[in-house]
Amino acid sequence: MDEIMKVIRETANIKQEDLLHDFRPLFVIYKDGSVERFVGTQFVPPSIEGVTGVESKDVVISAETGVFVRLFKPLSVTSDEKLPLLVYFHGGGFVVETVASPLYHNYLNVLSSKANVIAVSVEYRKAPEHPLPAAYDDSWAAVEWVRLGLAGAEPWLSTHVDPARVFLAGDSAGANIAHHMAKRIAKCNNPDGKIALKGLVLVHPYFWGKDRIGSELQKLNSSESRFDRLWKLAYPGTTGSDDPLFNPEMDPELSVLAGEKVLVFVAENDLLRDRGVHYKDLLVKSGWKGEVQVIETEGEDHVFHLYNPVLPKAAELVDQFVAFINSS
C-alpha cells in the first residue's frame, strides 16, 4: 500500500485537462492517446531465489505476440517427484501489472515454495493498446502451451507435474480470466486431449454487473462506477457491464466449468466483495456439480495480500490457498 500512496503523491500535479482517462493511481491516458502506467512497470528477471528455494525461467510461447510465461520450480523437487501444477493469471484490470513485476514474481515464488508446486505465471497483452479479448486469447494460448508442455514439450512440466493435479488461479482481473479459461477447458474438443483440471482459486475476482447488489447500493453514489468505465476502456466491443465475460449471472452456460472444486477469496472492505459471494451462489444455482467455498478476510481491501504480504492476514490467505491445493 505504500507504493500506491507514493504514486498518489507523485501524480498529484498531473493536470486533469491534459487527460482523456484518469485511473490514478494505476494509469492515465493522455489526450494524445499515450498511456502512462504507474504500477507494475519494474522488471524482475527470473532467478534462483535463495530464501524460498525456487528457480524460475521465462519461455516465449508466441513469437508473433511476444506472449510469455514465467515458470517456477522448487529446487527441492527430485528427479522422479510429481508435483501439482498451478497456472496463475495476474491482476491489474487488464491494463497494468506483469508476471515480471516484483509484486507477482515474489508472490509466485512464495506460492511455489509453500505449496510445493510447479507454477506457470501467464503474461498476456494488456489494454488499451491490445483491447479485450486479447488477454483471454493470450491466456488460452498459454493453457494450450501447458497442455503441450505436459505431453513432453516442456521438461519442467513433463518431468515434474502430476497431470491429475492441475489448478488455475488468479486475482482480480486474473481471477476473471481463470474462470473463463476453466470454461474453455470444459468446452474444448481438442482431439489430442485436454487438461484435466482439478480446481480453481479466485482471489477477489473482478466480476461486475449493470445493477447494484448487496453493499454496492450503499457504497456507490452513481449508477456508473469506476469498474464500469474501466471495463469499457479495456473492451470497447463489449455489450456493457452485463457482458457474460464480466457478469457471470448473464452467462447461460455458467455450469459448463471444468474442475472439481472452487475456492473464492473475498475481502470485507473490497467493493468487489459481494460479487465474489454472488458468484458462489450463481455457481450452485447453475447446477454445476463441483464444490465451491468462499473465504472472507475481515477488515481488508482488494488484493491487500499483494501490497502487504507481511501482514498475518496475508500469510493466512496464502496458507488457505496452499491447503486448498494440497488437500487434493
Rank of each mutant, 00 (worst) to 15 (best):
residue 191 P to Q: 06
residue 238 T to N: 06
residue 80 D to L: 14
residue 5 M to K: 15
residue 148 L to T: 13
residue 221 N to S: 10
residue 175 A to Q: 05
residue 83 L to D: 01
residue 303 V to A: 09
residue 231 W to F: 14
residue 136 Y to K: 13
residue 279 Y to E: 08
residue 264 V to H: 12
residue 289 K to F: 02
residue 1 M to V: 11
residue 59 V to Y: 11
residue 62 S to E: 12
residue 219 K to V: 05
residue 217 L to A: 03
residue 51 V to M: 07
residue 213 I to Q: 04
residue 208 W to F: 07
residue 70 R to P: 03
residue 81 E to Q: 15
residue 9 R to E: 13
residue 153 A to R: 09
residue 244 P to A: 04
residue 260 E to P: 02
residue 19 L to Q: 08
residue 34 S to K: 09
residue 228 D to Q: 13
residue 21 H to K: 13
residue 53 G to I: 14
residue 131 P to G: 04
residue 309 P to M: 10
residue 33 G to L: 08
residue 170 G to Y: 10
residue 247 N to L: 11
residue 297 T to H: 09
residue 91 G to T: 12
residue 28 V to F: 05
residue 306 L to M: 09
residue 105 H to P: 06
residue 54 V to P: 00
residue 258 A to F: 14
residue 3 E to A: 15
residue 163 P to S: 06
residue 271 L to A: 02
residue 27 F to W: 10
residue 240 G to C: 02
residue 233 L to D: 04
residue 55 E to R: 15
residue 68 F to M: 05
residue 262 V to N: 05
residue 96 V to M: 04
residue 145 W to L: 00
residue 295 I to A: 06
residue 115 A to M: 02
residue 251 D to G: 10
residue 227 F to S: 11
residue 61 I to R: 08
residue 113 S to A: 15
residue 64 E to H: 09
residue 72 F to H: 12
residue 31 K to C: 00
residue 246 F to N: 12
residue 224 E to S: 06
residue 242 D to K: 12
residue 76 S to H: 08
residue 93 G to D: 11
residue 40 G to L: 11
residue 275 R to M: 04
residue 107 Y to V: 05
residue 191 P to M: 04
residue 323 A to L: 11
residue 40 G to R: 14
residue 187 K to P: 00
residue 238 T to D: 04
residue 231 W to P: 06
residue 226 R to Y: 01
residue 88 Y to Q: 13
residue 266 V to Y: 04
residue 239 T to R: 10
residue 36 E to R: 15
residue 168 L to V: 00
residue 111 L to P: 02
residue 127 A to C: 12
residue 285 K to I: 09
